[in-house]
Design a protein around this nucleic acid. Structure first.
Length: 289
DNA sequence: AACCAGGGAAGAT
DNA sequence: ATCTTCCATGGT
């Protein structure tokens, strides 16, 4: 067992992130005690569970990371810092919005980080599974999927691997209340990943546009799914899912227009948000939680 | 009991 | 290329 204390850049709302993640029944966390357990599959297929706990404030954020295996300490810390984007200073982003139409929003909800989903592959599967479903049932379905085909170690669940899902028959997902269409999307995409035809690690190194281009060719993956995967899977800073119902509802409330905004309005409003449109999106979602 | 939900494919213009 | 319909299932 080892522990390390880390002082972050000014402005990092870890507690909000915990609150956001508490939607996900797969995660083992405690909002009051300010910690979350992160399953990590490290080099050599070695599994580690890291506990990440807040001990500071939004303006003076400090974090404690602890885990079991001391020989994996450096790799664990690097992976955690990557997932939580601790190398990124949110101050320039926060300052950017003081000159925009979202100044009040960012004044009310400062320092919202983009903490990435803990597993790149599962993030994509989750996004496909969540297409067109209400949040509650969406998480029921994705957690059923993970519980059935992943591996539980105590309180922490390690996500399924594409090889496991690639071997499934569509009926195995229908049993979990997947639609036939959705079962095909999930399994067919997993087969492409397992065979190497689709490589998510490679996509991680490519520009947003290239990811749209390549992932868009996969059956079952459209613009909404790509945007969400870029945002929550890869933590990219400049995405605005304007087709998303939640975003539209948040804008409706923030600009008090009494109706859903039009695409043209959203395009116009969002111009000044570049290159931080993901942070605008995150903060808009946050505003209607 | 409709209508909706953090869509997308397939078919029709 | 763009518009419409269908798919599929639980929530409200």
């Amino acid at each position: 067992m080892w522990t390390k204390e880390i002082t972050l850049h000014e402005l990092y709302d870890f507690d909000y992130t915990l609150h956001r993640l508490s939607w996900d029944p797969l995660l083992h966390l405690n909002v009051e005690e300010r910690w979350i357990d992160v399953p990590l599959v490290l080099s050599g297929d070695r599994k580690e569970i890291a506990r990440v706990q807040a001990i500071g404030t939004i303006e003076a954020p400090r974090i404690q990371v602890s885990a079991l295996v001391s020989e994996l300490k450096e790799e664990t810390l690097a992976r955690i810092a990557h997932l939580f984007q601790w190398d990124l200073d949110l101050s320039p982003m926060q300052a950017h919005f003081t000159d925009t139409n979202l100044a009040k929003l960012f004044h009310d909800f400062p320092g919202t980080p983009i903490v990435k989903d803990f597993d790149l592959y599962f993030s994509l599967m989750k996004t496909i599974i969540h297409q067109q479903l209400n949040m509650k049932f969406a998480f029921v379905l994705s957690s059923r999927f993970a519980e059935t085909f992943g591996e539980r170690k105590g309180d922490v669940l390690f996500y399924p691997k594409p090889e496991t899902i690639a071997d499934l028959d569509y009926s195995k997902l229908r049993e979990l209340q997947f639609s036939q269409r959705k079962a095909e999307y999930v399994i067919d995409t997993s087969r492409m990943i397992a065979s190497g035809e689709l490589d998510l690690q490679t996509l991680e190194t490519e520009e947003d546009d290239a990811v749209f281009e390549k992932l868009g060719k996969v059956r079952g993956i459209g613009p909404w799914t790509i945007e969400n995967w870029l945002l929550f899977g890869l933590g990219r800073p400049d995405l605005f899912p304007k087709a998303d119902i939640g975003i539209q509802n948040a804008l409706k409330a923030y600009f008090t227009i009494g109706r859903k905004p039009t695409m043209e309005e959203m395009v116009e409003w969002s111009k000044s948000w570049h290159p931080y449109r993901s942070y605008a999106s995150m903060t808009l979602w946050r505003s209607i939680e």
